[in-house]
Design a protein around this nucleic acid. Structure first.
Length: 216
DNA sequence: CGCCTTTGACCTGCGC
DNA sequence: GCGCAGGTCAAAGGCG
């Protein structure tokens, strides 16, 4: 029986380690009916009653390459029930992150980019980290602006891009660039099977991915 | 006073 | 080469 870790979406920013390349399903949350995530380990067949609601995109794992990222995007856009999503900017034009001098970097700081599509009224969910907004940009063909955030912890260069789905504004698309090199102020997780609360380093416990983040 | 948000300008890459 | 679009910077203002 695989271990299933349930994460409140408000804690998605706690991914000190990247999630394994498994499916993300959304389920009802007894505490927060608006949204609820669950990560399912490899080889686990979700119950038929579950329904895939939110898009979960592991856009990159280390290096950003045009082909791989575009492939991942192509597959991600085929999520059942999901619109072609308003998510576009992160990879359509700029697959990498530019340095200050404008040189395009293909390696994302921290090495990971993960996007979530969440049904939420709140545009910015409390994910346990402190974010500082550094930019806001209107996006073409989208009535909703895109907001840019940086982790306000010193030395942590994780970025977060938040925008509403252009086709369904009830969904919020959150993209995380990089991996936090520090612990969250409130590392909490749910294990739906065993429900141990307050155990730190949740992803360490279940980590089986070879790319454990040894972020600087 | 420090931190955060806002917002316009600037820079760069890409498509035509 | 030019224009457009996305991403970032930084000054100014607000708030606790």
């Amino acid at each position: 029986m695989p271990t299933i870790f349930y994460l409140r979406p408000s804690l998605t920013g706690l991914l000190v380690k990247p999630p394994p390349p498994t499916l993300l399903y959304a389920m009802d949350c007894p505490e927060n009916p608006n949204h609820y995530y669950s990560y399912l380990r490899d080889g686990f067949d979700p119950p038929a009653t579950e329904f895939q609601v939110s898009d979960y995109l592991v856009l990159d794992d280390g290096f950003v390459e045009d082909e791989s990222s575009s492939q991942s995007m192509a597959s991600s856009e085929q999520v059942p029930g999901g619109s072609p999503t308003g998510y576009s900017g992160a990879t359509s034009r700029n697959n990498g992150i530019k340095c200050k001098n404008g040189v395009k970097k293909n390696k994302i700081e921290g090495g990971h980019r993960v996007a979530f599509r969440t049904k939420s009224e709140l545009e910015v969910m409390d994910d346990g980290f402190k974010w500082r907004k550094y930019g806001k940009k209107s996006v073409k063909n989208s009535p909703n602006p895109r907001n840019y955030y940086k982790c306000s912890s010193g030395g942590c260069d994780v970025k977060k891009i938040v925008e509403r789905d252009r086709e369904d504004s009830t969904f919020v698309i959150t993209t995380y660039d990089g991996v936090h090199n520090h612990e969250s102020p409130c590392t909490v997780y749910y294990n739906y099977n065993q429900m141990p609360m307050g155990v730190p380093h949740a992803w360490t416990l279940q980590d089986s991915s070879p790319h454990s983040s040894s972020s600087s």
